[in-house]
Amino acid sequence: MAQSIRSKKFARQLVAMSIEEDRVVPERVSAVLQALDKKPPREYKAILRAYRNYLKVEVAKREAVVEHAGPLEESAQKQLAAFFNDTYGRTITIVPKENKELLAGFHARVGCDTYEYSARQQIEELARKVASQTI
């Protein structure tokens, strides 16, 4: 248990080294990986796993994956980016992703937060309400 705490702490230090100006820098990540490969620490695999998980969280925190049904205009993307930057106080990159199952509107995810503005969710909500009333 103590060793795993140590490896987690070490992984967190590696993540801090991979971030510059509040964003994950791919070059720094490569440098960290190369350095580790040259001189593998104890619990190398556990450290790499923890590093990957922490990095995933850091990337997710700085990314807004916006699923959309129709085309997502450049201006709409800018509006969304400005909104997320304001909300979280950091630079959020918009990653558009087409999802026709949404029917209309969008569904965005920033870290653990989700923003729902899709026709599919509204219809599902309506179906749930009607079903509960019919029962």
Partner: peptide, 18 residues
Amino acid sequence: QIEEQISQLESKTVKQNT
């Protein structure tokens, strides 16, 4: 009934922590 529900539906974005 469905029409009434549609009119009651909130059209704003719903934020949730997941």
